[in-house]
Amino acid sequence: MTKITVSVFILTYNQEQFITQTIESVLMQQTDFAYQLVIGEDCSTDSTRQICENFASQYPNNIKLLPALDKNIGLIANYMRTIKECDGKYIAICDGDDYWIDKYKLQKQVDFLESNPDFSIVYTRVRKLFPNGEFKESVANTKGRTTNFDDLIFDNYIPSVTTLFKNIQNNQNQLPKWILKYPYGDWPTYLWTIKESGKIYFLDEVTAVYRVDIGESFKIRKKVSAIVKTDLLITKDILIDLNFAHKQKIVEEALIKRKISLMVRYNREGSYWRALKLFFYNLQYDLQQNAVTKMYFYSLYKSFK
């Protein structure tokens, strides 16, 4: 059996208008190693499943289409079952409504990780595609070429469609079940991957297109406060997860900053009662009382202005 170097996992549900382009963008990859597509199709009600089956029959050595489901299980449950089926040394993500535009994407990223074993994740720029057909490239990276866990815990700056990361999953190191509580799993997966060691590298090239304002995660992203709150709750679970015990100090710092950020966001969105409750909570339990007070009243002022 051919050894798989990269598993590309694709999650898809009711994406008949996009899934062909997604799969073809992966199949166009030119590499000197073997890679597979692992497709998790979540009981679509359109022709998505049939399209995936057609590709799987044409490329049986490249595509691993997971068995059909009796009912829709949702994005994160589908994420967890699909990532478990990835056999490669590395994993790449390409959601069913996104696609790659660089046919050497995987080769470049694998070459880097193979030559730099102290790195565990590599990602690139992304081109955003808006519903009106307009393209816009992501802004310049402000994090630097090399980052690590202590940077990523504060902000998920990695576009999932561009990333390649080490597959560290095994019976003793499976992703934590608490991820199932949340609407997305990429950021917790990256943090899990580098919790012990491993740096992150930014490859300053555009390799993929991300479709904006569509997809399963779009609902939560319509309100910034919903994203901040979800990240805050994820940070709380990381804090109490013993696998991250050696990172307690930096995780606590990230948790405090997210509480302040959520308070500010509530004021900006006009949820003043929620902001006020969080303000008093932060004053009672956090050490950065001056920063909390300053940010609360400043955000309140800006919301009225």
Score class of each variant (00 low, 15 high):
Ile19Asp: 04
Gln21Tyr: 01
Gln21Ser: 09
Ile23Trp: 10
Ile23Tyr: 06
Glu24Ser: 03
Ser25Cys: 05
Leu27Thr: 04
Met28Ser: 07
Gln29Trp: 09
Thr31Trp: 12
Thr31Leu: 05
Phe33Lys: 02
Ala34Ser: 14
Ala34Tyr: 14
Tyr35Arg: 08
Val38Arg: 06
Val38Pro: 08
Ile39Cys: 06
Ile39Met: 09
Gly40His: 02
Gly40Asn: 07
Gly40Thr: 09
Cys43Gly: 07
Thr48His: 11
Arg49Val: 00
Gln50Arg: 15
Gln50Ile: 11
Ile51Val: 15
Ile51Ser: 04
Glu53Pro: 08
Asn54His: 06
Asn54Arg: 09
Ser57Tyr: 00
Gln58Ser: 14
Gln58Phe: 13
Gln58Gly: 02
Tyr59Gln: 03
Tyr59Pro: 00
Tyr59Val: 00
Tyr59Arg: 00
Pro60His: 01
Pro60Gly: 08
Asn62Thr: 13
Asn62Met: 10
Lys64Cys: 12
Lys64Trp: 05
Leu65Tyr: 00
Leu66Phe: 11
Pro67His: 02
Pro67Ile: 08
Ala68Asp: 05
Asp70Leu: 15
Lys71Cys: 11
Lys71Gln: 15
Asn72Gln: 12
Gly74Cys: 06
Leu75Ile: 08
Ile76Lys: 02
Ile76Ala: 02
Tyr79Pro: 00
Met80Arg: 14
Arg81Glu: 12
Lys84Ser: 14
Glu85Leu: 03
Lys89Phe: 00
Ile91Tyr: 04
Ala92Tyr: 10
Ala92Asn: 15
Ile93Thr: 15
Ile93Lys: 12
Asp95Lys: 03
Asp95Gln: 13
Asp95Val: 04
Gly96Arg: 04
Asp97Asn: 06
Tyr99Lys: 01
Trp100Gln: 13
Trp100Phe: 14
Lys103Gln: 12
Tyr104Glu: 02
Leu106Ser: 09
Leu106Cys: 05
Val110Trp: 04
Phe112Ser: 10
Phe112Gly: 03
Phe112Asn: 04
Leu113Pro: 03
Glu114Lys: 12
Ser115Cys: 08
Ser115Glu: 10
Asp118Gln: 14
Asp118Ile: 06
Asp118His: 14
Ser120Asp: 13
Ile121Glu: 02
Ile121Met: 01
Tyr123Ile: 11
Arg125Asn: 11
Arg127Glu: 11
Arg127Phe: 03
Leu129Trp: 02
Leu129Phe: 01
Pro131Asn: 12
Pro131His: 15
